[in-house]
C-alpha cells in the first residue's frame, strides 16, 4: 500500500460488507474491514479498505455478486 493512500469500498449494509469480504477472501485479495471514515459518510457501519492497485481486482471480484455503493480513494 502506498504511503497515506488507500481505497475504501462502501456498501448499503454491514451484511453486504461482510458478504463482500467472503468474495475478497475467496479471491485472495488483501483487505481490511474498518469503520466507515466519518468524513466520507455519516453511516455508523463498516467498509472495506484495500490498496489502490487492487481496485480492478476488487471490482472484478464483486461485480454481479455484491452490490456496492461507491469506491473512494483517500
Amino acid at each position: 500500500m502506498s504511503a497515506a493512500e488507500y481505497c475504501v469500498i462502501l456498501f448499503d449494509s454491514v451484511s453486504s460488507t461482510l458478504l463482500a469480504e467472503k468474495f475478497l477472501k475467496k479471491a485472495a485479495i488483501l483487505h481490511k474491514v474498518i469503520p466507515v471514515p466519518r468524513h466520507i459518510s455519516s453511516d455508523c457501519g463498516v467498509c472495506i479498505r484495500f490498496s489502490p492497485d487492487l481496485r480492478d481486482r476488487v471490482e472484478q471480484a464483486l461485480t454481479g455478486s455484491v452490490e456496492f455503493r461507491e469506491i473512494c480513494t483517500l
Binding site: V14, S15, L18, I34, V36, V46
Partner: peptide
C-alpha cells in the same frame, strides 16, 4: 453485530 466498527463487532457480524 454491525453496530460498531471494532474487531469483535465485525466478528459478531461474521
Amino acid at each position: 453485530p454491525g453496530r460498531s466498527g471494532h474487531a469483535r463487532s465485525v466478528d459478531a457480524g461474521r
